[in-house]
Design a protein around this nucleic acid. Structure first.
Lengths: 185, 185
DNA sequence: GTCTATATCAAGATAGAC
DNA sequence: GTCTATCTTGATATAGAC
């Protein structure tokens, strides 16, 4: 039954997520995931043949979750590239843990299966591609988006310590720029 | 003789660097480094007791190299925080491989010894700390710096593919902003 | 003192029992 | 379908050669 198998996979992905969030992505082992899910390592390998596949599925689910949150924020209204960036920034601004959580998934993928980052690449290209234009406002929007990703990655990957004030200051500045462009300046 | 030991360590670090650049940081093993350096694994462990120490030393040397390149660019002139950011961006702009190379070191540290990122954190804090101010121009400078780091990390860590044009466009825009602030607008 | 060779341990993958 | 047992590889520590 494919339905039952789906449920099993979801249960395993829940366990994988728990391990990722607890270990910060560093100690992501099949043993740990299997134990969390209450099955043996062999049982785990039956559902996900390789660690890569497990990482891919977990990352894909996490990206989809963030994507859905952004879509919800857009609410089915008009969705040009600038609206998309604004929704992305607002989601990062208001859902503080969503960003921290995403960082843990990115580290996990980078450490344990870097070839499996495809869902992440798709997400970013969807944001960046429409901003490739000669128009000055779009340059500014891209610049703001990249500044947000810069502080997010520097902080999330542990490349620098960032205070809550510093983070908020950067995100608010970026949001104001994008909102300004959207309002026609 | 401490002099001889220094030379040995440097030779090993050269080998470590070669392995990091060839493998992209993913397959960084003591075996590979020892083989590259033309010594046994035991000999390697004699010079660097743990893998963590090897990663730390390699990363520290790489950050110092970048730091020196930035310092050279400043040329002993007046070095306020904005000049520092400008020199950093110009170095990233002109030395394309320096940035790519640094990314490989960052991935290596993240994968094999994330606690050893201290030299990186020090470097970034030196850039960011003086920019914590209420003055609008400094906000803009920080924003530009973070956009540069954003595109650098997204590309270097493999989170998105970035064309050469796209990269250059972002860096030039950032440099112009910082240069503008420096020129008193 | 510096290095080689080896043992020990953990994690991922695989095969086959049930 | 799920689990047990085993193989392989990489990291660390150590015993002993020179």
């Amino acid at each position: 039954m494919t339905r039952k198998k789906e449920i099993d996979r979801d249960r395993i992905l829940d366990a994988a997520e728990a391990v990722i969030l607890e270990s910060g992505g560093q100690r992501f082992t099949l043993d740990a995931v299997a134990e969390r899910a209450g099955i043996s390592k062999g049982g785990l390998v039956y559902s996900f043949a390789t660690k890569d596949q497990l990482v891919y599925a977990a990352l894909e689910r996490e990206v989809a979750r963030f994507q859905e949150a952004v879509d919800r924020r857009l609410g089915g209204g008009p969705t040009g590239p600038v609206e998309l960036v604004l929704a992305h920034i607002e989601e990062a601004l208001e859902e503080d843990d969503a960003a921290t959580q995403m960082a843990a998934f990115l580290i996990t993928a980078l450490v344990h299966a870097p070839e499996m980052l495809e869902p992440v690449r798709r997400y970013y290209r969807a944001l960046l591609d429409p901003l490739q234009s000669e128009r000055d406002e779009l340059h500014e929007v891209r610049h703001a988006l990249l500044a947000v990703e810069g502080i997010f990655l520097l902080r999330g990957l542990g490349f620098v310590e960032v205070s809550a004030d510093e983070l908020k200051s950067v995100l608010l500045h970026a949001r104001d720029i994008v909102a300004g462009v959207l309002a026609g300046r």
